[in-house]
Every structure is written in structure tokens, then in C-alpha cells.
Design a protein around this nucleic acid. Sequence first.
DNA 1: TATTGTTATACTCTATAACTATA
DNA 2: TATAGTTATAGAGTATAACAATA
Lengths: 211, 211
Amino acid sequence: MSTRLTAARHPGPVTDLPSTDRPRGTLHFGPDVPPVRGSPTALARRFSQMCMGMMVEGLATTDLTALQYAVLSNLNRQDGEPGIDQNGLAARIGVERSHVSVLVEELVAKELIEQRVNGADRRARLLHLTPKGEKLYARLRPGIRIANESVLEPLSPHERRLFIDMMIRMIAANGTHARPGARRRKRGSQSSPSRKSGESRKSNDLGRRTS
Amino acid sequence: MSTRLTAARHPGPVTDLPSTDRPRGTLHFGPDVPPVRGSPTALARRFSQMCMGMMVEGLATTDLTALQYAVLSNLNRQDGEPGIDQNGLAARIGVERSHVSVLVEELVAKELIEQRVNGADRRARLLHLTPKGEKLYARLRPGIRIANESVLEPLSPHERRLFIDMMIRMIAANGTHARPGARRRKRGSQSSPSRKSGESRKSNDLGRRTS
DNA sequence: TATTGTTATACTCTATAACTATA
DNA sequence: TATAGTTATAGAGTATAACAATA
């Protein structure tokens, strides 16, 4: 059984929800919008997918991935924190230290960032954008910002602030999960069949004529 | 330059934000919470990471991935839509048809779902949970639901409804992006160095003593 | 010719672990 | 011994394209 529901397109909250409960089951929208489940997880997935879609559009003229852009946005002098080390960057963008190593390598190869050894602690590498990196970020930022704003466009200005605020509160409260490693699962507890390439997937009969 | 800000821990909205603007730059929280950028995209990433963390915990006693569970939640008889075809499922969970093929194969191998050829259109496969699948979903659902609710716990009951509602409105409005394929980028516009295995990554000098 | 599902491939992101240099 | 970063490997998820069966 599925919860039928047509979402209000723009201004107010969806009003035909029982005020004592949230939608359960699968939510159905108009013809252009695929149905979604009403759980935070399912919505989070779609929402993030949506943001990534916007992001990729905004980066279409470059060869940057979303995370590579995230690095630039964390390190730039305009509104970032230049000079943080790789662990700090890992914490900020929410990826593993090892992944940061790779991201940094890629961006160094593109000559967009540089690593400087910290004089005080020669283990650490402090990260800065190169002039080329700053220039690229300055060029990209307006479009990305507009894309980000457009995601929130169905909300009223007050709701936009509230939405960001609620996100922040949930992330802050669940800090232990909102970071890499939270998703850890035992090694070797794999679920995919893990075929050798060469043996084909399935007989795939199921009543089809083998013509 | 970074926006310093200490998020209110529980009940009300964060109050020290200028009411005419949203936080820009990097947001700093307490010692247990890594900083985040204030853009919807960055928050979406963290939020989804958080939800996935919860999900993986809830699935820890199984060998299901988050998406495999999503399939069960879309097909079960309690609150799902049994009998939809694979394209319908793809639209609902927001993955490519080709990925659904793989997910279905994995779950069929676990004997949790089954494919039935549609009599009316022999191309389509209608999906149903097996009794084993229904049983597993019934066992898992309460824990997953509690995990999902716990994500929203920092919000007041009214805010929880509003948050879900806002998510739904944004997803509905941006329907063209909230689905796979929105993230498309030109093929071959790759960013990784794409090393041959055998040649090592970088000289990695940077002033380290080569002891 | 168009659509459903399958297979293959490649890339992005995530998770771990072992390792080096430095503290 | 502990920490910052590197390298390697594997799994999960995403993006495309070519194909077979069916419409």
C-alpha cells in the first residue's frame, strides 16, 4: 500500500498530510518526478543526488569532480581556510585521509593547489591554492553558488534559513555519524556474487522464448 | 576567512545568524563535530553520509547493502509497492536500470525477491518479495525506522514534518535532477592520472629527509 | 523503431590496512 | 608509541553503451 500524495508545487507546505504523522511508504508526485520513499534516508539520497546533478552542471566546463571542487572551496582565500593540513581537509569535506591524499595529488597535478611542509611539524602538509587555483575558483564560484541557491528555490526565504539551520543542527547532533568511517562494515561481509570475468551472469530464462 | 559559529545543541534554531543571510564559508561546531561548509551541497553530503551511517548500523546483522534494503522497502507488501517492474523500481530508488538489474540479481541469489514475467508485456519483469524476503523486511524495518527517526531527533515534532515537507518540495521541483543521469558528464573527461599499476605515484619529495 | 532488461566497462567515492617519515 | 601522510586493494555506487527479446 502506498501513500498517494501530490506535492504542492511552490509556496506553502504540503497541506494534505495528517498533522500528527509524517508520510510513510512511497510518495507520488507529478509525471516528471519519480516517486520517493518518505524516510529521511531516501530523501537524503535524492536530495544529495539533486545537488550533485547541479554541481556537475556547474563544473561541466572543467574537468573537476565534485570533491575536487569541494577541496578548492575549502582552501581558497575568498571564503575558505587556506593553510589547513590534509587531516583538517579530510574532516571538512568528510572523506578519508587516504582519499584526500589522492585528491591532493590530482589537484597538484592540475597545478591548482600546492602542499607546503609545516615548519613546526614536518609531518604535516599545509595546503594552499596556487594563483591558477584561486583564479579557477573565482571563476567557478558564482555559478556554483547560483546552482546551490536554485536547489532551495521552492522554499521561502525564511524557510531557506530554517532548512539550513535544521540541517546544521542534525549534523551537529549526529557528529559521530556525519563523518567517514561511520559507514564502516565488517570486511569480507560482501554481498555481490563476485564473479570471475569469463563466466556469464545468469541463465536468464524466466519463460522468455529462446527464439 | 571563515564564519565562526557554534550551533545550538538542541531545541531552537541557531539564533546568532544574521536574519537577512545564511551562513557562508565554513561552519565550526564543537570538538566532536568536524566543520562543514554551509552550502546545500556540502550539507546534503554530510546529511546523507549520516543517514547512510545509521542505515549501515541497522543492517549490521545482515549482508544487505543500503540499496538492497531500499529495494526491499519498495517491494514489500506492508508499505511498499509489490509488482512494479524494474524500470519502476529504478525510478523509485533513483538508480540506473542497469544497476537495478544487478541489484535484482543479487537479491534473487539471496532468495529475497523474485522476478515474474508480465503476461501483458513479456519484456517486463514484475518484482515481488519472497516469503523469506517479507520476513526479513519485517524483522529489519523497526530498527531502520528508529534509526531514521533518530536522525530527526534534534528537531521538534513540528520541525520534523516541516523538514520532510521541504525536502519533498525541493525534490519535486527539481525532478529532472533528482534522478540518475542528472549527474552525467562527458565520457573520457577524466581527471585521475590513471596510472599503470607498476609505476609508482609520485616522487614525493617536498623537503622530507630521504633518511 | 522503441522499450525492457542484460551485460560490460570505466570512473567516483568509500573503507581498510600496511607502510614511511616524523614527533 | 603516536600521528601525518602515502600506497594499495576491494567494495559500492554511478554513467554509458551495446545488445537481445519483445512490442
